[in-house]
Simulated scan of single mutants.
Amino acid sequence: MSKLRVNAFTLSLDGYGAGPDQKLETPLGVGGENLHKWMIGTRTFRQMVIGKDGGTTDTDDSFAVRSFENVGAWILGRNMFGPIRGEWPDDNWKGWWGDNPPYHVPVFVLTHHKRAPIVMEGGTTFYFVTDGIHSALERAKAAAGGKDVRVGGGVSTIRQYLQEKLIDEMHLAISPVLLGSGEHLFAGLDMLKLGYRCTSQVATADATHVMIGRA
């Protein structure tokens, strides 16, 4: 049965998934790039995101590998797709990742502003969904063909799916970094009342990997 998953989503010790002042120069917000030390040295990240060989094959990499397994479609918030706000000024911006993004499956981007689909290299097509999270999930599940749908973020998008009790399982990497402000994942959410529990945790030098599932 197809699941709605969050994988390899990194939080600071104080619960922020991105720092303040996200923009083109600081896409993860001020200090946000420090969250992802656990991932950027892994073989999976180097191969799938930056197209290079090498990298670690340790516990951190095993979580990165699992994050791509059995994924048939993605859902992204608009901030994860790019820094542009409001109406699309033109069709020039096609994401942060160049001509061959690391998704290789259909990706559904939540936005309030219509835009035609963008076909990229490697099997990625970006579809822009203007009628909410339920419509995006319905379309993503249809496109996934029985495989899982991965919610890539950002914080606001994950929170919306959590509030509707739609996420089946979530892997969070808690980085030993304090951001102080930014986008907080759990503020105002009662995860216990929503039916979620921690099912396992594994610590490495650069992160504590926490699995959360439905009770």
Rank of each mutant, 00 (worst) to 15 (best):
M1V: 13
M1I: 13
S2V: 13
S2P: 15
S2L: 10
L4Q: 03
V6M: 12
V6P: 10
A8V: 12
L11M: 10
S12M: 12
L13W: 09
D14A: 09
G15V: 11
Y16R: 11
Y16P: 06
P20F: 04
D21P: 05
L24H: 07
E25A: 14
L28E: 07
G29H: 11
V30F: 08
G31H: 07
E33L: 14
N34Q: 15
N34M: 14
N34C: 11
L35C: 13
H36Y: 15
H36E: 12
T44N: 07
T44V: 12
F45H: 15
I50R: 09
I50F: 04
G51H: 09
G51D: 03
G51S: 06
G54W: 08
T57E: 14
T59M: 13
T59V: 15
F63D: 00
A64I: 06
R66N: 13
V71K: 01
A73Q: 07
W74P: 01
W74N: 13
I75V: 08
L76F: 15
R78H: 09
F81E: 00
I84R: 05
G86T: 10
G86D: 08
E87S: 02
E87M: 03
E87Q: 07
P89A: 09
D91R: 11
G95T: 01
G95Q: 00
W96S: 01
W97V: 01
D99C: 04
N100F: 07
N100E: 15
P102R: 08
P102D: 03
V105M: 09
V107C: 15
L110H: 04
L110S: 02
L110V: 04
T111G: 00
H112W: 05
H113D: 00
K114A: 15
M120G: 02
E121N: 14
E121A: 14
E121F: 05
E121T: 09
G122I: 10
T124N: 00
T125C: 06
Y127D: 08
V129S: 00
D131N: 14
I133T: 13
A136C: 05
L137A: 05
L137Y: 04
E138F: 10
A140R: 06
K141G: 03
K141Y: 13
A143F: 07
V149G: 09
V149R: 12
V151T: 01
G152P: 02
G152Q: 02
G154M: 06
T157S: 02
R159L: 02
Q160R: 10
Y161F: 15
Q163L: 09
E164P: 04
D168W: 12
D168L: 08
H171L: 13
L172K: 07
A173K: 10
S175M: 08
S175W: 09
S175T: 08
L178Y: 14
L179E: 01
L179M: 00
G180K: 11
G180V: 13
H184R: 15
F186N: 00
G188K: 03
G188H: 04
D190N: 15
L192T: 12
L192M: 11
K193N: 10
K193Y: 03
L194P: 01
G195I: 01
Y196S: 00
R197F: 07
R197G: 06
T199V: 14
T199M: 09
S200E: 11
S200Y: 05
A203F: 08
A203L: 10
T204V: 08
T204L: 09
A207L: 11
T208N: 06
I212S: 01
G213W: 04
R214C: 04
